Simulated assay, not measured.
Amino acid sequence: MSFFGITRMASASVLRRLTQRADEAEKIITELKATIELIKDKAAVVESKPEEERLRKENTKLRTEIDVLKTQLVLSEIRNGVKQVALPSQTVIAQCVDKARANVTSSTPVVEKKAEVVEKTENVKDQQKPNKKGKEAAKSGEAKPKKGKAAASGPVEPEKLDISRLDLRVGKIVEVEKHPDADSLYIEKVDVGEDQPRTVVSGLVKFVTLEEMQGRVAVFMLNLKPAKMRGVLSQAMIMCASTPEKVEILNVPQGAQIGDKIVAEGYSGEPDAMLNPKKKVWEALKPDLRTNKDGVATWKGAPLKIEGKGQIVAPSLCDVQIQ
């Protein structure tokens, strides 16, 4: 074999080895790329877990705030005389849909319906045609005069609108339990010095514990119109200093007795037997019912108090709404 032949064989062998190594290198590169992508995916998952946890906590907080706002909305609607209607269940909705379909199936034919409508329309037109006597009366000017409002006998005195119209009294919670159909509501039996305790429904579950409610002496408004809250008739309202984040039951002075009347300095008069929801007396008075910078309950700056015993105060909330 010549020198050139040997050289060609050696070159072919080297070329095969280089090609083989290139293939192996390509395979290794592919495996490395796959490994890198896998590492990137794992890193993304690890980085996203803290973010997911943060979002989960924020969602839980927002859900709680929404529940509180819903409760406050329900209470506000009830105080404004808005009737609460429970939403129908899916079963009831399905039954209504089935009945509607059955009614459509068993309804009269369209042709008969059209004939009935035409007949009714003609009858109405006949009734609307003026008779001869009516025309003659119109021509002779003998038409009946329109009835008007009776003339007032004199000037109407403006209605008094101040805190004395609210029946605020000291009461004691003698029994309390959570509402069976509403997680945010308590049902209380309250002794206000009457023959029988009053039932009061309060949206305080998220702010005051059951143990703190039991036996609590507080201020109650007694002359709001009773209203049902999730099926339970509430006959009074417990008065609280309130913010969206915190609600505190107002404290009465030491020595206060069940049934004691709460008044505001400078405002005298007997409260309404029951506030008329249509006149919105409570809605008009509520904006000026606040705690002052010292936590004392006031109306237009006049402290609320029990004569001879002391003032009504909030445990810690100052300059906030009372409701």
Rank of each mutant, 00 (worst) to 15 (best):
E52N: 11
S202I: 00
K139A: 11
K49D: 06
L161I: 10
L210Y: 00
E283I: 02
E51R: 07
H179A: 01
R198D: 02
Q20N: 11
A102W: 07
N131Y: 08
A256S: 14
E177K: 13
P271C: 04
V247A: 02
K178T: 00
S13E: 12
D167E: 10
V174E: 02
E157F: 06
P88I: 09
E142D: 14
M239D: 05
G308W: 11
D272W: 03
S106W: 04
L18M: 15
V263E: 10
T209S: 15
E283C: 02
G266D: 08
S202D: 01
A86D: 12
A43R: 06
E26D: 15
P155A: 03
V45T: 13
S89C: 10
P303N: 04
L166S: 03
E31F: 08
L204P: 01
P244F: 07
A152N: 08
A137N: 14
L204D: 01
M213R: 05
K70P: 03
K139Y: 09
T30D: 14
V200Q: 00
P155F: 03
T91I: 14
V208Q: 06
G308I: 11
A86R: 13
G203T: 00
A12L: 10
G148E: 15
K278H: 10
K135H: 15
K83R: 14
I312P: 02
P197L: 07
S2M: 07
S316I: 05
Q214S: 10
M9P: 05
R8M: 09
K125P: 01
I262A: 02
K300C: 06
T105H: 14
Q127C: 02
S268W: 06
I163P: 00
Q235M: 12
R216K: 15
V192T: 11
G231S: 04
L166P: 05
G154F: 02
L250Q: 02
S48R: 07
G215C: 06
N223L: 08
A100T: 10
V252F: 06
Q321W: 11
K246C: 08
L222T: 00
V92E: 15
L250I: 05
M274G: 06
A143D: 09
L317V: 13
A284S: 15
P253G: 04
I66M: 13
A43H: 06
A44P: 04
N223Y: 10
C96A: 14
T209L: 07
A25M: 13
L222W: 06
G171K: 03
L275Y: 03
V170C: 07
V85C: 06
P244Y: 13
L289E: 03
D288E: 12
W299K: 06
I29F: 01
N131H: 08
K278V: 11
I36E: 05
P271N: 01
E26V: 14
I173M: 00
V263M: 09
T30Q: 13
L304C: 06
K129V: 15
V82R: 12
A297E: 03
T108V: 13
E122T: 14
R17I: 08
D41K: 13
L75C: 03
T71Y: 03
K261Y: 09
R290T: 10
T291Q: 07
K278I: 09
